[in-house]
């Protein structure tokens, strides 16, 4: 029976450029302008999983992203991969949100999308890397969730068995739908968009919603709706010797081993 699948995706700074990101010392917010962006890598696996579920069991896949107008790009990529619908949640009021405020906003958007069966997310982003939004979103939608998922098996239309990794091994979890699942890289190999997919994406509309459209209570969104906030930054004092050795490879090797002995490293 057809399933309604929502995949939450995020646009993040390209990792090679992380060192160029600076912090606004006055506002204590991150300045990301001018840095190339990509779709969060794990989100591609989440989109792929959604597409595979649709291929096996039929249904619709909707990609949802909360971000600035530029985040349209990741939704276009999702459409090019083959998702049916794309929604951008964009509003200045949503900026500066911590994970709880983000989860709240996404929850409101998903409520507006209507009935859903499965929500998929990447387990964490490469920028914040908290891995918190998924579980918080599930809590706000009052549905169960599983994180660190590397395998999803459908038993029948209303429940799944999800394998989730632990440090050395895994747990198998019976999961009732509707539910939210955060996926790991090893769950699948995502597809590249094809040329046809790219052209067809151009003809699909990306809906853009703001706070009013999703009937979000402004008290719970954005910087103001975030229980946590940045209260300062500082430079970490690193007390290391910072000796740089010079010479030919053999020379530095000898000097290094000698020094390591002296310092008690070996």
């Amino acid at each position: 029976m057809p399933l309604n699948i929502v995949v939450c995706i995020k646009q993040v700074p390209a990792p090679e450029h992380f060192s160029k990101i600076t912090l606004d010392a006055e506002k204590n917010t991150i300045i990301r302008g001018g840095i190339p962006s990509v779709i969060n890598p794990l989100d591609r696996h989440a989109l792929e999983e959604g597409l595979r579920i649709r291929e096996r069991l039929s249904g619709r896949v909707t990609a949802l992203s909360m971000g600035p107008p530029q985040a349209r790009e990741v939704l276009e990529e999702a459409l090019a991969m083959g998702v049916d619908d794309a929604v951008l949640l964009c509003d200045r009021a949503l900026a500066g949100a911590d994970t709880l405020a983000t989860a709240y906003s996404l929850a409101r958007a998903i409520k507006k999308l209507g009935k859903f069966d499965i929500i998929l997310c990447g387990n964490q982003t490469i920028d914040g890397a908290t891995g918190q939004v998924g579980p918080q979103l599930a809590e706000l939608l009052d549905i169960p969730h599983v994180t660190y998922a590397n395998r999803i098996e459908f038993v029948d239309g209303s429940f799944l068995v999800v394998r989730r990794v632990i440090e050395h091994g895994y747990l198998d979890v019976n999961l009732q739908l509707p539910a939210l699942i955060c996926v790991l890289r090893e769950i699948n190999q995502f597809r590249l968009p094809t040329a046809i997919g790219i052209i067809e994406a151009a003809s699909k509309e990306i809906k853009t919603w703001n706070c009013g459209d999703i009937e979000a209570d402004t008290e719970y969104v954005g910087l103001g709706g975030s229980p946590t906030r940045v209260v300062g930054v500082f430079k970490h004092k690193l007390e290391r010797r910072r000796e740089i050795l010079e010479g030919s490879p053999q020379e530095v090797a000898q000097k290094a081993v000698h020094r390591l002995r002296e310092l008690g490293g070996i």
């Binding site: 276009e76 990529e77 090019a80 590249l192 968009p193 094809t194 040329a195 790219i198 151009a202």
Partner: peptide, 14 residues
């Protein structure tokens, strides 16, 4: 065009 850019990106990744 946006499609040409997306194509470039896809081919590069491939």
């Amino acid at each position: 065009t946006r499609e040409q850019e997306m194509l470039r990106k896809m081919v590069r990744e491939f």
